[in-house]
């Protein structure tokens, strides 16, 4: 089937298969369609169907709340084409500068529990994938409705083994499946890479990463890439990692390795929201600092004290991302110096 997209900047046509969303079909062919979360929550990929038959997968998607379905409004990430279609998007088509996303198959292996509700797993891809640190993939498993977005924890060129992180949430079907029901080494559908909150050493910037809970995943890839590129030889870095209690923190050994390799230029602070930090440094990992308070507040006060030109990455639960963006802007950060991908 053929999809024709009309935008302010012109018109484009691409092919779309029966079993893929209009968004994924366009992206994998290099069409720079507007999107952020790619999983139905943000609403950025809204479009209006001008002609053709469609099939909406997740009608209650939160990102669809403001749409006018009677006028043909859809989320492209939740819609498949049943015939040739003409759709309009309200923005210009941006120029894609990252690697094109594609569909691959993946096999889940080596799941290991990191805390009571967080697990780390490997995803072996059917074909290697290039991506930028900070990007994510969307995984769909047979028998679990819908796709979930996971940021890569590791960074490598032409990567065949992605490391991913999952936080189990009450009622989360994918988490229940992965934690409890999964047998053997299941195959899943993988689409990616996606995401604009990327790290490129060539930008030559000091960086700060502010992560809440499982939002740490993409930050680990950013630090992985930065350490591989020896970025901290000439640039400052900071990671503020927010968790409820010290027992909820993880990746501490890996973070210690990154600090040790940073020529003294990377600061890692674990911010504890629900308990007081007993010591200024982690007792078992003395290269890591501890602080008490919500991570956005801890980061804001430390960053204010430094007064440095810095590119800031933010990831975590929607409420945490919102509070962090507020405190960064109120603290005088310019919007071009804040990067995040919105999932809520």
């Amino acid at each position: 089937m053929q999809i024709t997209v009309q935008a302010k900047s012109g018109e484009l046509t691409f092919d779309c298969g029966q079993h893929e969303s209009i968004l994924y079909a366009g992206l994998r062919q290099g069409v720079p369609l507007p999107f952020e979360c790619a999983t139905g929550t943000c609403g950025t990929c809204r479009a209006r169907v001008m002609a053709g038959d469609i099939d909406v997968q997740w009608k209650q998607a939160p990102g669809a709340a403001r749409l006018k379905p009677d006028k043909g409004d859809i989320l492209m990430c939740q819609t498949r084409a049943r015939s040739d279609c003409v759709v309009r998007v309200p923005s210009e088509l941006a120029i894609a500068d990252a690697a094109r996303p594609a569909a691959r198959r993946g096999i889940i292996r080596a799941i290991r529990r990191l805390t009571k509700d967080v697990a780390h797993f490997d995803l072996h891809l059917s074909a290697p994938m290039s991506f930028q640190a900070g990007q994510f993939v969307v995984i769909e498993a047979a028998g679990v409705a819908g796709g979930r977005a996971y940021s890569m924890v590791n960074f490598a060129a032409d990567c065949e083994r992605l490391e991913l992180l999952i936080k189990r949430k009450p009622g989360g079907r994918f988490g229940d499946w992965l934690f409890d029901e999964l047998q053997g080494e299941p195959a899943v559908q993988v689409f990616g890479p996606l995401g604009r909150a990327v790290f490129r050493p060539a930008e030559d910037r000091n960086i700060a990463c502010i992560a809440g809970g499982s939002g740490i995943a993409g930050m680990m890839a950013i630090l992985d890439h930065a350490v591989q590129a020896d970025h901290f030889r000439s640039h400052a870095g900071a990671l503020y990692f927010g968790v409820r209690t010290l027992a909820d923190a993880f990746y501490l050994e890996q973070l210690s390795r990154y600090v040790a390799a940073s020529h003294g230029n990377l600061d890692v602070v674990i911010a504890l929201s629900d308990e007081a930090a007993a010591t200024p440094l982690h007792a078992a990992f003395p290269l890591l600092k501890l602080a008490s308070g919500m991570v956005h507040a801890v980061a804001a006060s430390e960053m204010a004290a430094r007064d440095r030109d810095v590119l800031t990455y933010v990831a975590g639960p929607p409420v945490m991302v919102d509070s962090t963006i507020r405190s960064l802007i109120a603290g005088g950060a310019a919007i071009k110096d804040i990067r995040y991908d919105k999932f809520g």
């Binding site: 963006i325 507020r326 802007i329």
Partner: peptide, 25 residues
């Protein structure tokens, strides 16, 4: 942009009003 209530999403700093929802300013 998307009808966000600016009394909640608006932040004023350095002479700039930013809607923190999607960073229009």
């Amino acid at each position: 942009h998307m009808e966000e209530p600016l009394e909640e999403s608006g932040v004023v700093a350095r002479c700039v009003l930013t809607c923190t929802k999607h960073l229009w300013a």
